[in-house]
Amino acid sequence: MIINHPLLGPRDTSEFTYLGDASLINRPDWQSDTAAPEFHDYLYLRDNPAGTHRELWFHEQGDRSWLVVTRNTLTHEILATELARDVARKTGRGK
């Protein structure tokens, strides 16, 4: 499998490690009044779609950037790759 790195172009999947659902970027606010149930959902509840899935991959043997990879779980076709920090910044996170 080849992952088309947004900065470096096509790279072999063996250079990457997989973390999980891309929603892990959206860590709840620990100071929220409902932090406990929010963290429960964040930690334990996952969608498990047969089809398009957004997930976090780490370019461990490369430039060590985190990517959000949109992948079809039925065909393994990779539909899109983005830098995770760009995805997070679009939601107003970071600087």
């Binding site: 470096l8 790279r11 072999d12 063996s14 250079e15 490369g62 060590r64």
Partner: peptide
Amino acid sequence: VLDVEQMQAGAFNRSA
């Protein structure tokens, strides 16, 4: 696993 055939002078990559 790098595509070393495609690497031109000026290319620099980290890999295994």
